[in-house]
Design a protein around this nucleic acid. Structure first.
Lengths: 191, 191
DNA sequence: CAAAAAAGTTGAACAAGTTCAACTGGGGAA
DNA sequence: TTCCCCAGTTGAACTTGTTCAACTTTTTTG
């Protein structure tokens, strides 16, 4: 059953009974997206929070100069959301696009709120998920400041081999914060 | 009373009764730090989570090359912690140092856990605090990628005028991820 | 399959940022 | 007050990364 991946993910963070897991899952609806389809576009309000069952997504934003800036990629077993837009129902700064045909589980804002209300342990669950997320973002910032582009590139492909192998160099470059031409030169330099 | 600042901070995130606020506060113990004193040093285990009542702190790390890298500054009304080390009781990567004589409220790990247990709304409270924190870290990453150093400098001093005015340029440079010499050149260029 | 579009490569000129070293100036400690 | 230390400034040489444009290769689509 497709909910198993979600259940396994949740159990990594807190200890949940089978009944709790089933209740949580009951709020999530499966959905499919075709390659290049958007789950969210910049300027619109984020209606859904997602969990990836299969496929791969890219979360990115266009800055004032029109350059794409990739925040992160989400493959199987990753969460997918614009927290800010989802919680405050404000226009999103982010685009979320499927990089290949993908399957997700989605929960809308009302159901998420209902879930928080009906099952207090869900607050703990997401407290821990966000806590871990915050740590990763802090670490990424330190890497961005202390690693060279080359080091950041290697760190990325070594840490996420399954994700990075699916990506175009252009997308990796925008995640690393460098031009795709320069990434090409980095790769040439290695050989 | 010194706990008022903490109470006001907590109420910004969730609606809390007076009794709840008092209970939460009862877990926090006041402490003072002298200028240059450390609340945490890299390699040791983070025993305390803090909330700043007065003064200012710098949270930074030494990378492999020996360069200082500032994650953030915390002045009055800011939270102060190494989440990872505090939660998992693993050696910290971070240093937390008072930039001036400061006052904080501290809670240790056992009490934090007890607080989560005894008052479920605290889970919600920190779920929201971490959620907001995560959004700020995402935004900072995007700024680091899409802004020039000059733009990042202006954004920082305009967004945090009260904090940045207390800081040495060296510290601002390490927060921005540039050398202090280059920051000096940026400032010269403006005049 | 052929044509078109998009991704990747390369080079040259340029801009951004670092490093090192020398100098300036102010604040704290004895 | 004097000395010293440390923050900040400046210049020169260097490294890293960008931009633009031309080209090749791969992928998509009719």
């Amino acid at each position: 059953m497709s909910y198993d991946i979600l259940k396994q993910n949740l159990k990594k963070h807190v200890d949940l009974s089978t009944a709790d897991l089933d209740l949580i899952c009951s709020y999530f609806k499966p959905a499919g997206l075709r390659k290049k389809e958007f789950l969210l576009t910049q300027g619109s309000i984020c209606k859904m929070e997602g969990f990836v069952l299969d496929g791969c997504f890219r979360v990115f934003t266009f800055d004032k100069k029109g350059n794409e800036n990739t925040l992160y990629f989400a493959a199987k077993d990753w969460w997918l959301m614009d927290i800010d837009s989802f919680m405050n129902q404000t226009p999103s700064d982010l685009n979320i696009q499927a990089l290949e045909d993908s399957k997700v589980l989605l929960i809308d804002r009302q159901d998420k709120m209902a879930l928080y209300e009906s099952l207090p342990i869900v607050e703990k669950l997401f407290r821990i998920i966000f806590q871990k997320g915050l740590v990763s973002w802090q670490r990424r910032l330190v890497r961005n400041h202390s690693f060279t582009s080359k080091e950041r590139y290697f760190h990325f492909i070594q840490t996420y081999p399954d994700i990075s192998s699916k990506l175009m160099d252009k997308q990796i470059a925008s995640y690393l914060g460098i031009s795709h031409e320069f990434l090409s030169k980095i790769k040439k330099n290695i050989k």
